[in-house]
Every structure is written in C-alpha cells, then in structure tokens.
Amino acid sequence: MERVITSEFCKEVGELSPEALKLDRNRMKFILKKKFRNLSGRKRLGLVWMVLDPIVVSLVYLFVFSVLSARTSIVTIFVGITLFRLTQNSLKIGMNSIKDFTGGLKAERVRTRVLIGSMIRYRTIDNFLQSFGVALILLLVFDAPLIGIISFLIISQLIGFLSEGVGMNLAPLVKKVPDLINVVNYVLMTLFFASPALYPLSTTEGIHYKLNELHPFTYFVETARYFLDEQSEILNLDYRLFGFFLFILVASIIRGYSIIDRLRWRMTTWS
C-alpha cells in the first residue's frame, strides 16, 4: 500500500483491503487487551476492582454521613459518587489520551481509525464496569425500579463519553502546559463536594443552588435519581440550559475524536 507523508498528514492511498480491515480489527483487540492488562497488573482481583471501586468509595462516604448524622439516602450517594468518579476518571483519561498514540505497537505505524476504535471500545467497557456493580446493588439490595437501573447505566455511558470528550479537547493544552493537570485536579476536588454528588440538589439553596444549575453534572445525576424514584430537582431545572450543555458536550466529543489524527501527527515532534 502506498503511503504519503507530509506536514499535514500521514495517509494511505486507496481503499483498505479486507486483509487491512481484519488487521485493524485485530489491532483494536490487542490495544484493548493491553490497556486492561496494564490496568489489572498483578492485582489478584484484576478488573473486578473497577466494579468494586465505586461501591467501596460510596460505602466510605455513607459511613462518614452516618457519623455526621446526615440524612442522605443510600441510593442517592451510590448514584452520585459513581457518576462523579466516572466523570473524573474519563476526563483524566481524555486529558492523557495524547500521551501514547502508538497503540503500544512499536515496529509499525497504526492507523488512526484503530486508535479511535479502541478508545471507543475501552470507554464503553470502562463505563459499564464502573457502573455495573452499583446498578446490581441498587437492583438487588435496594429494590430500585428497572427503568431507573437502565437509565443509570445509559447515563453512565453518556457521562463517561462526554467527560472523555472534554478531556480530549484539553489534551493539547495539557501537553503544552502540564501544570493544568494540577489545576484540573483541584477543580474536580472542589466540584466533588460542591456539586450534588454526595447529596441531592434539593438540599442546596441560594448561590449554591444557582451555581449547580450551571454545572452539567447536576442534570445527569438528578435525571438518574429521578428515574430511581429518589429526591430529584430535574423537573424544576431549566431544560433549555440542559439542552445547551448537552449540545456543547456532544460537540466537544465529536471534535475530540476528529482531532486525534491531526493532533497525533503534530505532537510526534514535540518533546
């Protein structure tokens, strides 16, 4: 196959053959396997930790709240913490996506479609693993409605993809100014306590409530709680604002994936 390399692109000429398409599929599988293997490392429970992590963290906060005698519902905490951790992790993965565009194969260039394909598959599986354990507990232990469980799983997928999209847009900036990672960490920490992750929006008031109205996470977590028959303010929130946030987030994820090829190429000579 003929390949043309210029300052603008590195592309192959003509249609990809069935063999090339099969090779790409094998490479996607390899990259996924490598990512998950690296994540599980030598841990005895491996990927099970991805399922356990939101459950354990929720239980810790539940304990803290019971000590503080706060009357927050268990389901509200489980949903809030799971969705916030998913947002946090996906955003960070998006921001770090620029670090390795080789796909882990060092002797040959991997097509960008392979990288994008493996990123999408990874995100889907990661979103599922991080929300599945909690969904199961909500269903079996707390007798949550099925529609609520399904909504929770769908919102987990949405929030994971959208956060990664935002992270991917921040990635070039982070590469140029690595200090941004610290700033983002502090912002996320503040948002964790300030946004309705640990408590329903209805318990906030005044400026705190107003600020949360301007935070997209609020809309997702309150929607999930609504379908789980929990305390939720979603019907009192401005759906036009939600639509606006959704539009921006969807645009950022489309942009995030579409700039990978250009970005990958540009940063090969950065050090």
Partner: peptide, 10 residues
Amino acid sequence: RPSKGKIVTN
C-alpha cells in the same frame, strides 16, 4: 511529522 517536504512509500 515533517515540517516541510514529502515522503511516499510503497
């Protein structure tokens, strides 16, 4: 990535 020019490989 080159800053200028082109490479064609077959």
